[in-house]
Amino acid sequence: MAVISKKICMVGDFGVGKTSLIRRFVERQFSDRYLSTVGVKISRKMLELQDAQQQSQEMKLMIWDIEGQTKFKAIAPSYLQGANGVLVVGDVTRQETLEHLEEQIHKFTEINPQGAVAVAFNKADLLDSEEMAYLQTHFQLSHPALVGTFSTSAKTGKNVDPIFEQLAYQIWHH
């Protein structure tokens, strides 16, 4: 079967680790250096998906990384248009970024009602598991399009592949 291509977007405040998550996922790398993303940046990753019936599908993810939007202005809807899924990212060390998650999900699903949503509580390596557990219950999110909430770390690689793969799988078997 032919490769299908899908566009997914990264959304989240400035500095939460969107770019780092992509780098981990696509290039298997992490850097402490902060590379600010200007505008939009596109990366590509091939995935081989398989479902319970052993059917497989090659998927080409085109990942759009969008500049952090709190600092200057809202994300342009045109960047979100035509996306099949979104990874909404918050930084567990900065509560306010988690408070924005809901609104960010809303914004995406408004433009892409059919799109799938995954949420990353990123930089999980900086908190202990107790604190993480607290945050995840405290910032409980629910949305029909939500695939799942993951505690991730771009630094250690924790849950990075799973979150992207879950999102891709959801998009495929939508």
């Binding site: 696509v26 290039e27 993303t37 200007v38 505008g39 939009v40 940046k41 596109i42 990366s43 590509r44 990384d65 500049e67 200057f72 202005k73 342009a76």
Partner: peptide, 15 residues
């Protein structure tokens, strides 16, 4: 909003 490009290859800094 300005734009930058990123392939799977690190890019030189803007500066």
């Amino acid at each position: 909003m300005p734009i930058s490009s990123q392939n799977s290859v690190p890019r030189p800094d803007l500066s």
